[in-house]
Simulated scan of single mutants.
Amino acid sequence: MVTEKNSQPTLSRRSFLLASTQIVLGLGAVSAPSLACAKALDRRALSFFHTRTQQELRITYAAGKTYDRKALAQINRFLRDYQTGQVHVIDPKLLDILWAVQGEMGRRGVYEVISGYRSPKTNRSLRKGHPGVASHSLHMKGKAVDIRFSGGNLSQIYQCALAMQSGGIGYYPNDGFVHLDSGQFRTW
């Protein structure tokens, strides 16, 4: 939003289109800047429950522009390949996407993780039974997670992520999860 000399707020075309889309989608205050501003404004925390390992993690992973290395290491371990136990670095941008989506949904809830990092071996195994699993999945780079959120339904997660237009968003209502990644914006 731009304020002119007479202090009357005016919207840029982009801001107007974003706000209009949000109103149509029923998302109210969801905004792309919420992700961009995250690094400058808040302590960022996430709560997880891993559906495969039955483990829980509640953690503050960053404050302002600074990421907590110990917290990131805990998240890396938590989101490890559930079949092989292999740990991989998880992209902090993916965590910020999760944080922003959770914020738009009221920050009341826990991410239920179906799949975080996947080793190439696990990814190949999953591809055999599910043809929709990508051969070069961003799960293998620590840049993707398949989730549900106890504070909202799958459609709400999808709509919030879609409005932010940050990373990839896969909607799997029949399988009971949403895929989020920190790659280029795209949907399926």
Rank of each mutant, 00 (worst) to 15 (best):
G116L: 05
Y171G: 05
Y82V: 14
C160R: 02
H179D: 03
R52W: 07
R52P: 03
Q86R: 13
Q83L: 12
P92Y: 04
K143R: 13
N174K: 11
Q86H: 09
K93W: 12
R52I: 06
N174Y: 10
L154R: 00
D42W: 06
Y82F: 11
F177L: 11
M164D: 08
Q159G: 07
K128Y: 10
A71P: 01
R124A: 15
A100Q: 02
K141N: 13
L98T: 03
G109Y: 01
E56Y: 09
G151Y: 00
G132L: 15
Y117R: 01
S119Q: 06
S125N: 15
R43G: 09
L79H: 03
K128H: 13
L154K: 01
G142D: 11
G64W: 04
M140F: 05
H179N: 03
Q102E: 10
C160E: 09
K141R: 10
L72D: 05
G129V: 14
R118K: 12
Q156Y: 05
R148I: 05
R58L: 15
A45F: 12
S119M: 07
G109V: 02
G176W: 07
G142H: 00
E112K: 00
S135A: 12
P131L: 12
L46D: 07
K143N: 14
M164W: 11
Y111E: 04
G170C: 03
G132F: 15
H50I: 09
K65T: 15
N174T: 13
T53F: 07
L94D: 05
D96C: 07
A100S: 15
T53I: 05
V89E: 11
G64Y: 05
V145Q: 00
R108E: 14
G152C: 09
V89Y: 09
S182D: 09
G176H: 11
G116W: 00
K70L: 10
Q86E: 14
R148D: 11
I114A: 14
L94E: 06
Q102V: 05
L98E: 08
G168W: 02
V110Y: 00
K143G: 15
V178S: 00
D96S: 05
P131H: 13
L154T: 07
E112N: 07
G168I: 07
D181G: 06
R43N: 08
G170M: 01
F48G: 07
S47F: 05
V89A: 15
L79Y: 04
